[in-house]
Computed example of a mutant assay.
Amino acid sequence: MMTVLGKEMDGFVASGALPGAVIAISSSAGDQISAVGSSGPGGEPLQADAVVRISSMTKPLAAALTHQLAASGLLALSDPITRWLPELADRRVVRRLDGPVDDTVPAEREVTVDDLLTMRLGFGFAFEVDSCPVAELAVARGLGMGPPLPSAVQHTPDEWISEFAGLPLIEQPGRQWRYDLAYSVLGILLARAAGKPLPELLSERLLQPLGMGDTGFAVPEHARERLVPCFTGGDVVFDGTDDSDWLAPPVFPHAGGGLVSTAADYLRFGRLLLDGGGSLLTEAAVADLSADHLTEEQRSGPSASIFLDGEGWGHGVQVRLDPALPRRYGWGGGLGTTWYNFPDHGVTAVLMTQHLPPLGEPILHFWKTLDDLLGAA
């Protein structure tokens, strides 16, 4: 598999469609990691241990952490989030997405932890209207509905939730799957439930036990020389290396998109799920995390139709539903990173690039090639 996938990505490098990529595969044959191309236009050869910004691939880790806290009795997925976030009591909901912020009705029920995991909080991007005043107000308040840069949010977690509490929801809790603020709320909840900051909690519970020493909300000191730049618009630097936004600990550790990592580190996490959770997660938790939780109506909703393309959603992961294709679950990041597990084949695969928006053609071709290889196996 690695030979074929590497050759395909080499073709995109040669054509100029892709500067470079790190490819990682874990299967019954063991772990294989390789790099093709360069770190960017005119850059140095890309190394297999390159540190990259994984943006929304943070979500599956946050979901796994939630299941760990549930197993420890610190929370239940059915719990109302107001148990830890009293600021969010008595939610109001706007009557219309494009209506006035102060034209609201009471929420029909409380938001639960599961609503956050499944992104059915009742708040996020409203693509189906030309203008959504509530979402625009969230942007104006600096709540992070924009490019995934740590410096985009300058609120502490307590300040963030206070600002968010001043906004109504844009729809009733549980009604729709909608990107993207649910995991921002989840990260604050997890820290309060465990009584420690999210970076410390994630490190103690998942990163350290898995040996993910290159993963964190800031680039670890020992790994700074391996951070590669992220580009946008071809050769324009979105985030560099010497002045990267990820060099210092963020004011707001974002559970939905704040981590840096490496292909090798993320392969360890993928393998944990593929192996049933090991000593860190129960098999039931992995099954719940990787199962589709959406209704048919929610899968075809305005946000889901853009981000999920007809597939399902578990806890932090997209879930493939097409029985004609290899079963898989996983997720990608808005800066060009993707990961999927293929449980029926015992395979976990990671593709790391660094570009905003992700370079769609080579990424889609990578996964199509892997589907074909697994389907023929």
Rank of each mutant, 00 (worst) to 15 (best):
M1R: 06
T3V: 01
F12L: 02
V22W: 14
I25W: 01
I25R: 01
S28E: 14
V36W: 04
G37K: 07
S38G: 02
G40H: 02
P41R: 04
A48E: 05
S55E: 13
P60S: 13
A63Y: 02
A64M: 08
A64P: 07
L65T: 11
Q68T: 07
A71Y: 05
A76N: 07
S78K: 14
T82L: 01
T82N: 10
T82I: 03
R83T: 14
R83W: 00
E87H: 12
A89D: 13
R91H: 13
R95F: 00
R96A: 11
R96M: 08
G99W: 11
P100D: 05
P100Y: 03
P100A: 14
V101C: 03
D114A: 13
D114I: 00
T118V: 08
G122Q: 11
V129Q: 11
R141Q: 15
R141C: 02
P147Q: 02
S151Q: 05
A152K: 03
H155M: 13
T156K: 10
P157V: 08
F164C: 11
L167Y: 06
P168G: 08
L169P: 10
Q172D: 12
Q172T: 10
P173D: 10
P173C: 02
Q176N: 12
A182R: 02
A182M: 03
Y183N: 14
V185F: 09
L186H: 09
G187T: 04
A194Y: 01
K196P: 00
L201G: 08
R205H: 12
R205T: 15
L206H: 04
L207D: 13
Q208R: 10
G211S: 10
D214R: 14
G216K: 10
F217E: 03
P220R: 12
H222F: 04
E225P: 00
G234P: 08
S244A: 13
W246L: 15
W246K: 14
P250W: 09
A255S: 12
G256E: 09
L259M: 07
V260M: 04
S261L: 14
S261T: 09
A263N: 09
Y266C: 14
Y266M: 15
G270P: 10
G270S: 09
L272A: 03
L274I: 04
G276E: 05
G278A: 08
S279Q: 15
L280G: 13
L280A: 09
T282V: 12
A285Y: 03
A291M: 12
D292T: 00
L294G: 04
T295D: 07
E296D: 15
E297D: 12
R299F: 14
S305C: 10
S305E: 10
S305I: 10
S305D: 14
G312L: 12
G312M: 10
H315D: 02
H315C: 00
L325C: 03
R328H: 13
R328Q: 15
W331A: 04
W331T: 05
F342R: 07
L351C: 01
P358S: 01
E361W: 03
I363P: 07
H365D: 14
H365V: 05
F366E: 06
T369P: 00
L370E: 08
D371W: 07
D371G: 01
L374S: 07
A376R: 15
A377W: 08
A377P: 00
